[in-house]
Design a protein around this nucleic acid. Structure first.
Length: 492
RNA sequence: CGGGGCGUAGCGCAGCCCGGUAGCGCGCCACGUUCGGGACGUGGAGGUCGUAGGUUCGAAUCCUGUCGCCCCGACCA
């Protein structure tokens, strides 16, 4: 990726794309706006899925799967939702091709196969799921209904960027139905907490939990909660959302239940999701000029072992030791890769695995065999130490824990250092241009002010933080009264 | 949809202005020397130059159309 670029340079965006490609995570597909996730990139997604899925199950959710296609009449049922997504939908209008009578070997859409009703390729699944929930929910005994699905969705974005915004992406979407507003709000907040915990514990990425302004919230939601993370160029990235839907979808799809008292009431809903964008966030939050830095809890390979050898015989000797070490580490549940390729020199392998972000590298050569030692190098700080072979199985777990927390602390410090309180519009603009990051400022709560600030500075209100203390102040733009600071930032 | 750029070997690119045997680097294959921080030598395989048409004795190169991609905007719960 070239030493002239650093993780925080103005060319961050290009640097990021290059890294995604060089680390073998993903590439642009020949299909417009779509992405091919390569095996190494996908394995990171699988690690994320595993961890999240456990957390969803622990909070009482189950997995199911709903159709990719949403009949247009269902899609338009919840007006705000439909309107919000209308401009970025792929639509199926025909179901058949036929041989082109004009051009041999070519196919055309068969005009006779026009669908009576178009099918929208889901940009999100509320419509199809709530139309199904109507059939599933009759009584308070059917509630709460706590379902998640792992799926792909399609949003026909004008411009795309690997992982951060692609025309098709993978995600999970939870859709729950509840008997009371209070319970649904609790669910919304609980899942936001799950996301925040996942981001901080697994991704080692500190986040701010908050609510979106009315202008930024999910179409069809009463409240949109989100977690916002900071990338190393100081820009914000929304990495998860949780929506309190009120009774909007229940109304649109006529989903009612009988209460214990025999009354018929509309159910209350939530939806929440995280996507493969998390991978982009992970990369941009931790990587350095040598490549990815993966937190141990999400690294597909925890430890790579690189043999140093001159001859087949030396490789054989090293290998037998490696087998012992590798077996001991695997027994503790770690993923271990023995890179015994004989066409590459050790230095090349070091660089390559660093590029891929493997947290720990162990090198073993003839010298180590003599001394009963190995060289252990950690990816995050690049420190190397020589330790006794017998100590490896004990030392590695500690080291991995240390790496996990070190990466988090580093990101936390960065986030805190790049978070600034400002009280005037001039300071606001100055901080955005010179320092970047999150800017905490008073806002009068109006959509007009929000959109004017966005227009003039490209900064958006990332969220109204849940933990913001009440504080009297004046809106930096309009000077009107405000009781809380909100988080502004330029964002991806 | 606007502004800019690019389609030539698996990848990255040169060649095009000024038409004349399709090249370079990386990677790949074989052999040898190397191997504790991105090795080297020798030999080899691999391309209808995005696509359609035109000009020409002859087109990667000139002309026209067309398709696609990338970057910057507009757009983006």
């Amino acid at each position: 990726m070239g030493k002239e670029l650093t993780a925080r340079s103005v060319d961050y965006s290009q640097w990021y794309i290059d890294l995604v490609k060089k680390a073998d995570l993903a590439e642009n597909s020949d299909v417009r706006g779509c992405m091919v996730i390569k095996p190494y990139g996908y394995s990171i997604w699988e690690k994320m899925q595993q961890a999240l899925d456990i957390m969803f199950k622990e909070t009482g959710h189950v997995n199911a799967y709903f159709p990719l296609f949403v009949p247009k009449s269902l899609f338009e049922a919840e007006e705000k939702n439909a309107e919000g997504f209308a401009k970025e939908c792929a639509i199926v209008t025909h179901y058949r091709l036929k041989a082109d009578p004009e051009k041999k070997g070519k196919l055309i859409v068969d005009p006779d196969s026009k669908l009576e009703e178009e099918l929208v390729v889901r940009p999100t699944s509320e419509a199809i799921i709530w139309s199904t929930y109507k059939k599933w929910i009759q009584s308070y005994r059917d509630l709460p209904l706590l379902i998640n699905q792992w799926a792909n969705v399609v949003r026909w974005e004008m411009r795309t960027r690997l992982f951060l915004r692609t025309a098709e992406f993978l995600w999970q979407e939870g859709h729950t139905a509840h008997a009371t507003s209070n319970e649904a709000v609790k669910e919304t907040e609980q899942m936001l907490d799950v996301y925040a915990e996942f981001a901080e514990t697994f991704m080692a990425m500190p986040v701010i939990k908050g609510k979106k302004s009315d202008g930024e919230k999910f179409p069809g939601a009463i409240d949109t909660y989100c977690i916002e993370a900071m990338m190393q160029d100081g820009k914000a990235l929304q990495v998860g959302t949780s929506h309190f839907l009120g009774q909007n979808f229940a109304k649109a799809f006529d989903v009612k239940f009988s209460t214990k008292e025999g009354k018929l009431e509309l159910v209350w809903g939530t939806s929440w999701g995280v996507s493969t964008r998390l991978i982009g966030g992970l990369i941009m939050a931790h990587s350095d000029d040598d490549g990815l830095v993966l937190p141990p809890k999400l690294a597909p390979v925890h430890i790579v072992i690189i043999p140093i050898f001159r001859s087949d015989e030396e490789l054989l000797n090293v290998s037998s030791k490696v087998d012992d070490i590798s077996a001991a580490l695997k027994a503790k549940g770690y993923s271990v890769k023995f890179d015994n390729r004989d066409n590459l020199k050790p230095g090349f392998k070091f660089a390559e695995w660093e590029l891929k972000g493997v947290p720990i590298r162990i090198a073993i050569g003839p010298r180590d065999l003599e001394n009963g030692t190995v060289e252990v190098a950690r990816r995050d700080t690049k420190e190397k130490q020589v330790i006794k072979m017998d100590d490896v199985a004990m030392a590695i777990p500690r080291l991995l824990d240390d790496i996990q927390s070190n990466i988090f602390q580093k990101a936390l410090k960065f986030k805190n250092d790049k978070t600034t309180k400002v009280d005037s519009y001039d300071d606001f603009k100055k901080v955005l241009d010179e320092k970047g990051g999150f800017v905490l400022a008073h806002w009068d709560g109006t959509a007009e002010t929000e959109s004017l600030i966005k227009e003039e500075t490209k900064a958006t209100i990332r969220c109204i933080p849940l933990d913001a203390p009440n504080e009297e102040g004046k809106c930096i733009y309009s000077g009107k009264q405000s009781t809380k600071r909100v988080v502004f930032a330029r964002a991806y």
